[in-house]
């Protein structure tokens, strides 16, 4: 299982294939115009990654393919719920895939609340494009994630993509659970500081 960690090394050029603003345009066009071509662009980029995500969560290849297809069907159906002021496209798609995974593989549900704290304060007369700045800046976040020490990223990736609890991460990396948690805290402190927030 320790091999899994080395398999998680990201491909550096992945994001180069798609600008963040392009994804927003595609998803918005799917919502407004039922734009099939835009949907296929989203499919080309995201479906193979969602499939990869499902396999890491324990699905075999054919189930993962099926779950990735279903994620895309949900993206088509729920596209009108996407609000570019609140989240990046990748964040929104991650949530759709994650919730499907919990429902199908873990067979329970995840209670959530609307994360509208930012959106509620948007009556500031800014144009739509300026408002996009309100969501966590995806490109900045990508760059910041790239600066985190590997030992912190290993812990964060294992939690996100192997669906491991902290005690399972602790077991797999042979480090105490307190160390797992402190690495996660350090990683998030650094991300928050980089995003210009008070901690």
């Amino acid at each position: 299982m320790l091999l899994a960690v080395t398999n998680l090394i990201p491909e550096s050029e992945n994001m180069a294939g798609m600008a963040v603003s392009e994804a927003v345009d595609w998803l918005t066009s799917v919502a407004k115009n039922r734009d099939r071509q835009a949907f296929e662009h989203l499919y080309d980029y995201f479906a193979p990654r969602v499939k990869s995500y499902m396999m890491r969560q324990g699905a075999d290849e054919s189930s993962a393919d099926d779950l990735a297809q279903e994620t895309m069907v949900q993206i088509w159906r729920k596209a009108h719920h996407y609000d570019p002021r609140k989240s990046a496209v990748s964040t929104w798609i991650f949530r759709v895939a994650r919730n499907l995974q919990i429902d199908r593989l873990r067979k329970h549900k995840l209670h959530e609340v609307e994360l509208t704290a930012e959106a509620e304060h948007n009556d500031d007369g800014l144009g739509a494009h300026e408002r996009f700045e309100k969501r966590p800046d995806a490109e900045k976040l990508t760059a910041l994630i790239g600066t985190l020490p590997e030992e912190q990223m290993d812990v964060v990736r294992l939690a996100f993509f192997e669906g491991l609890s902290h005690s399972e991460v602790s077991y797999q990396l042979s480090i105490p659970i307190g160390t797992v948690k402190s690495r996660i805290r350090l990683a998030f402190d650094k991300l928050r500081m980089g995003m210009g927030e008070k901690i």
Binding site: N7, P10, E11, N14, M15, F46, P48, R49, V50, K51, S52, Y53, M55, R56, E61, A64, S87, A88, V89, S90, T91, W92, I93, F94, R95, A97, R98, L115, R135, P136, A138, L141, T142, I145, V156, R157, F160, F161, L191
Partner: peptide
């Protein structure tokens, strides 16, 4: 969640 989205983008596509 945004970190999850970024990490999803980084995953090796299958």
């Amino acid at each position: 969640n945004a970190v999850g989205g970024e990490l999803l983008s980084e995953l090796r596509p299958v």
